Simulated scan of single mutants.
Amino acid sequence: MRADARRNRERIIDAALGLFAERGPGAAMEEIARAAGLGVGTLYRHFPDRRALVEEIAVGALQDLRAEVRALEALDVPRGQVLERLVAYCAGQPFALIKALAEEDAAPAERRELQAEVDGLLEDLARRAQGEGTVRRDIAPREVVELFSTVVCRPGARADDALARVVLDGLRRDPAPRSP
């Protein structure tokens, strides 16, 4: 792909992410093109429809999350802290959009496989955290991933909001009491 075409594609994706964050997944393609400073024809040459654009965003976000999980796994810190750092990383990522997309209809094979791989990495992380005693053992690793998803796959997710704090505290082996 030519450098100018690659830049245009990146501008479209950045504009789409901004508009989706601001207005939700219903932002019009024309608005996205305008926000990217490009013509609608350029947008449609890169992405034939909204679905193609959102799919590319979803796959990119999942690939980035996979890389982040692997990078954090390499750190010499307790696995429970890795899980907390992943929650912080996911804040501001388009995971609410991905979840809404997944609920609409069947995902393409590439995204399903990538999601399964990321879920497997997260389950392994949960299992190791349970083994070291930083995450409670009375919750199955799959359920830990479901709780993680609940925390990060919602609009406005933040690592320091009430839901994230309650879930992370609840996952700790011995949750520390918090003052009111």
Results as ranks from 00 to 15, higher is better:
Ser179Tyr: 07
Arg178Cys: 07
Ser149Pro: 05
Gly60Met: 05
Val69Trp: 03
Ala107Tyr: 08
Gln81Asn: 14
Ala15Gln: 09
Arg7Lys: 12
Ile12Ala: 03
Gln63Met: 08
Glu73Lys: 11
Leu122Phe: 04
Glu117Lys: 10
Asp76Lys: 12
Glu56Trp: 04
Arg2Lys: 15
Ala74Leu: 12
Ala88Asp: 09
Leu168His: 09
Leu122Gly: 01
Ser179Gln: 04
Glu104Thr: 13
Gly133Phe: 07
Arg128Glu: 14
Ala74Gly: 06
Asp138Ala: 06
Val145Ile: 11
Arg137Ile: 10
Leu86Thr: 05
Gly92Cys: 08
Arg23Ser: 12
Arg79Glu: 13
Asp174Trp: 15
Leu83Ile: 10
Asp105Pro: 02
Ala52Lys: 08
Glu103Val: 01
Asn8Arg: 11
Asp14Ile: 00
Gly60Arg: 15
Val59Asn: 06
Val77Ala: 13
Gly18Asn: 03
Arg51Met: 03
Glu10Phe: 01
Gly170Val: 03
Gly39Gln: 10
Leu43Lys: 01
Val144Lys: 12
Arg66His: 12
Ile32Tyr: 00
Arg111Phe: 14
Glu110Arg: 08
Ala96Ile: 00
Arg6Val: 14
Phe148Met: 03
Leu83Gly: 10
Val144Cys: 05
Gly37Thr: 11
Ala5Tyr: 05
Arg158Cys: 05
Ala100Tyr: 09
Arg127Leu: 08
His46Arg: 02
Arg50Tyr: 02
Ala116Glu: 12
Arg2Gln: 13
Leu43Asn: 01
Leu114Gln: 04
Phe47Glu: 06
Leu72Asp: 11
Val77Arg: 12
Ala96Asn: 15
Ala88Pro: 02
Gly133Thr: 13
Glu56Tyr: 05
Ala157Pro: 05
Thr42Gln: 08
Ala164Cys: 10
Ile57Arg: 07
Met29Cys: 02
Glu117Tyr: 00
Arg9Phe: 00
Arg7Trp: 05
Gln81Arg: 15
Ala96Arg: 15
Ala5Val: 10
Arg136Cys: 07
Ala107His: 08
